[in-house]
Design a protein around this nucleic acid. Structure first.
Lengths: 345, 345
DNA sequence: CACAGTATCCGAAACGTTTCGGAATTGTCT
DNA sequence: AGACAATTCCGAAACGTTTCGGATACTGTG
């Protein structure tokens, strides 16, 4: 059981003051070369490592960025977040930063988790994801000196760096893809309405339908919570309607997988009897049968970019970049089915 | 820009000493109920959050566990680690612990990263993975008071908690699976030999072959580095031999995916002209075409269990459990092919 | 009324680091 | 010789918290 080395222990061993030891190790130029050599040797001998807590107490950097995953229940297994974490973590690692991961449900006391990170000075910066139309986290952080970047937009007026994918345009494009295949009865499983991306995508869906003179029955829109099982449940509701849809689009791929799984259980031929469209393009979307037609979001790259932007912010590198809006890309797979004869909807 | 609240600021506002404020908030019973109420209200008003660094400096818990991923280059994207991180992260989240992620290549100065975590008191415990036969990290941590648990065994004699999957038995079982299908020319792409699991699996492979009177040509064993591209490269070497193997087994699924990808590029029918076997059973193994025969390891669950064991260790809950050895499970998929007529090998 | 016992509070030290301001020594220039 | 600058070092304060060892005042008891 070794005594942990401190500045004091080195000071005692070498006869120099704690201040001098600190400055020698810190690379300051007001210490004699011989002195520095002696101190460095002793530090080496004791295998000294500075105490990070004490350093931070002085207001120094923690070389750590924080990522709080907002979800009901632990959600590290969600491929969406896996990819996002991978992008963030890898980029942080390159810069020598560690990654502090935490989860919290989007409940009122969620802010406490953020406060803990900020006031506790545990991290040098934060990455937010899954923004809400009205986002208290952003309001809070904007009042703070803590640097942060955001995946997604919000209607909260505040000045911050974000990257988002154009959900309006994306959902409209996907909708028109199905319309062009001859579909008219298109249903949509939407994520909770308070989420920003949910709002934009709904708009895109509605406008695209309207542009083509198609109506959306009210019971064709069902809310899910982004999990596979909620997609399964919603599909069950939709497909037992008197006049069921021929297409089900969902707010994310995970729910689409649930839809496919329900359809297969019901013995429906996906692509043929029921077309399905997702959003995200997570890896399983490619491998499921039939393949899932979806809008591709470069989640991993967004994680990387956001992290780099955050690191720049932490380093106070000047940049006038505030928001980036990326277009998603339509990926057509088997779940789209073939062009169908234009029979009455 | 708000002033951050501290014990001192609350002390100043209420007129009570810092000590009393600390004890009131800490829930000690030597403070008057009225006093406590006043202090709590003021703390609320200032939205006080304790400074974690200062607390840690007193030797308290950081409510954080550390996970250092040993890999060349950032490797968060590796499905193996994704799953492991998910298991660890979710279990930690349930207990209210955060997760500190870091990566480091298994180079000599890798230990510095561990020292930083330990001496800097950044975490309350550490999770190690991908053990080596002779593992300096374990030697180091054993000298320390830092609690730690390990995914994998080692030959280093030390007393520690670990979970491992029986690679000897697993590789032997997989080998015999292919032998039972009529194969005799079986090649193996091994991970770097200094890794413990690599060692055990090689033994399992060799013993199984010996039991059935089959020999392993020296050029049938190639070393890979666990990445998909190294599997691709190794497959290229193996399949260009004068007398190529009819089966390629690999040290992990990622390399097996590389093998399949090479085989498909060469126009070989996987399963038919070349059988492939992996190890791990990561999600893509199920979705690739043809499906990958592999030994299933419950990586996610291992992450959960290890984390719980670590948390118990941190809480100093008594336990006599030291090591668990789990059997992997054979998963047969399309890459095995059919039983083949017993033509000369 | 003296005493112990209890309830309530607080000063000061400690954790390990950084940094401000200055002190001591030596050398350099008129 | 005196003034001045450069070099090298250090004491003390600060960061925000916890905790030890009392201090004070109030209660009830005999």
């Amino acid at each position: 059981m070794m005594r942990t080395a401190t500045l004091k222990s080195i000071s005692k061993a070498t006869g120099f003051s704690v201040t001098t030891v600190s400055r020698a190790l810190g690379g300051f130029d007001d210490v004699n070369d011989d002195t520095r050599r002696i101190i460095l040797e002793e530090a080496q001998r004791q295998s000294y490592e500075p105490n990070l807590q004490a350093r931070l107490l002085q207001g120094m950097r923690s070389q750590t960025i924080g990522l709080i995953i907002p979800a009901y229940g632990p959600r590290f297994s969600d491929p969406f977040f896996s990819q996002f974490v991978a992008g963030v973590g890898n980029q942080a690692a390159i810069a020598g930063f560690d990654l502090l991961l935490s989860t919290h449900a989007p409940t009122p006391d969620e802010l406490d988790t953020y406060r803990r990170m900020v006031a506790g000075r545990r991290v040098d910066g934060l990455i937010l994801s899954r923004t809400r139309l009205h986002d208290a986290r952003i309001e809070y952080l904007a009042q703070t000196t803590m640097p942060f970047v955001v995946f997604g937009r919000t209607q909260t007026p505040a000045d911050y760096v974000y990257i988002d994918v154009d959900g309006y345009q994306g959902q409209a494009e996907l909708t028109e893809h199905f319309i062009s295949l001859g579909h008219q009865r298109i249903a949509y499983i939407t994520p909770p309405q308070y989420l920003t991306f949910s709002y934009f995508r709904m708009q895109g869906f509605q406008d695209a339908m309207a542009r083509h003179g198609l109506s959306i029955p009210t019971d064709y829109v069902v809310e899910g919570d982004l999990t596979e099982s909620s997609g399964y449940a919603a599909a069950s509701t939709l497909l037992q309607l008197e006049n069921p849809p021929t297409v089900i689009m969902t707010g994310n791929d995970l729910m689409a997988l649930g839809v496919i799984s329900y359809a297969l259980n019901r013995g429906l031929r996906v692509g043929d009897e029921l077309a399905v469209g997702g959003f995200d393009d997570i890896p399983p979307a490619e491998h499921v049968h039939p393949g899932l037609t979806t809008m591709h979001q470069p989640i991993y790259q967004i994680g990387q970019h956001l992290t780099q932007a955050l690191l720049d912010l932490i380093e106070k590198k000047p940049s006038d970049q505030r928001g980036i809006l990326m277009p998603p890309k339509l990926i057509v797979r088997g779940s789209s089915g073939e062009v169908r004869p234009n029979k009455r909807g």
